[in-house]
């Protein structure tokens, strides 16, 4: 027996959002801007995710990449990997997708106030950071230097490149690096190598300067907050690098992806050691994470 319900707020019941605009970011990444068609998601905080899907195909967890102060529409930047994401990336304007959310613990922006902030992304990992970066840029008087480090496989795979360029214009220290500049290497003026190789130069100098200003002051160790998103290996290497520079692991935040399915902590799929990622994450601190990412197949 079934009854018809139209509750907008039940976290396990999908509601309809329409595709207002879609933009191709790379050959396999697109951003969908979606607006409420029937029902509306509660407001969200940067770092939270939705379960977005196509009825009959399935749902996937995707972070909301648009600014949190804009509730009229939500943006999702999606890479075509599996059945659902392939369909989402191909969705046309006007198509209706299903969403549930927002879920999970957001970036802790308040803890970063008063200090320098570094956002370090690998590949499409810049998307879950975007709403946080927008917030920091908007409230930039509350923060010190703002650093954005982005690594990608090739120049073509750098997501949000025009936006990153515009950030640079506003004084944000934006640095890009690629694994391979590609056949047309002469058109790439950024770095070549891993994103971790940018950290010492960009972040390390900040750390040193602050520490030199206040020698012996424990508080200076807290002056840099880092926000990380990317492949597990990239984030682990970044954490190691940051900790070597003296950044407090409590002030290193990462957003994790596991197999989020119910997104409300009851299906068991997204466990990573003692963490239920949909409930305790997706954003966790390096302290909370411990060695969970260095243990293989955890």
């Amino acid at each position: 027996m079934t009854v018809t319900m139209r509750p907008a707020r039940a976290p396990d019941i999908p509601i309809s959002y329409g595709v207002l605009e879609r933009s191709d970011e790379t050959h396999d990444v697109a951003t969908l801007r979606t607006y409420p068609v029937a029902g509306r998601l509660p407001s969200f905080a940067p770092g939270q995710f939705s379960m977005i899907g196509i009825a009959g195909v399935g749902e996937v967890p995707i972070s909301i990449s648009s600014p949190a102060d804009d509730d009229t529409a939500h943006s999702y930047t999606i890479r075509a990997i599996g059945a659902v994401t392939q369909r989402l990336v191909r969705a046309g304007v006007g198509d209706v997708v299903t969403v549930r959310g927002p879920f999970g613990r957001p970036w802790d922006m308040a803890s970063a106030e008063g200090g320098d902030v570094a956002f370090i992304a690998g590949g499409i990992g810049i998307a879950p950071l975007r709403a946080a970066i927008e917030e920091v840029v908007r409230d930039r008087q509350r923060y010190g230097r703002i650093i954005v480090l982005v690594g990608a496989t090739t120049p073509d795979n750098v997501v949000f490149r025009p936006w990153l360029e515009s950030l640079r214009q506003t004084g944000v220290d934006v640095r890009l690096t690629v694994d391979r500049p590609g056949p047309d290497a002469s058109s790439w003026f950024g770095n070549v190598g891993l994103v971790t190789e940018l950290i010492v130069d960009a972040v390390g100098s900040v750390s040193r300067v602050v520490q030199d200003d206040n020698p012996g002051d424990e508080a200076t160790r807290d002056r840099l907050s880092a926000f990380l998103c990317g492949p597990d290996a990239m984030m682990m290497a970044t954490v190691v690098e940051l900790e070597q520079l003296g950044v407090d692991p409590d002030h290193i935040q990462l957003t994790l992806e596991r197999n989020m399915q119910c997104a409300i902590g009851t299906c068991g799929h997204c466990q990573l050691g003692g963490l239920l990622i949909c409930r305790d994450g997706p954003v966790v601190t390096a302290t909370q994470l411990g060695d969970a990412l260095t243990t293989s197949e955890l």
Binding site: M1, T2, V3, A10, P14, S16, G18, V37, V96
Partner: peptide, 20 residues
């Protein structure tokens, strides 16, 4: 059975029937 969804065309809202 948790719910059923109906959507005739990609541009239609998804009608959700929650199973009692």
């Amino acid at each position: 059975h948790t719910l059923s969804m109906t959507q005739s065309h990609a541009a239609d809202p998804v009608e959700v029937h929650v199973t009692a």
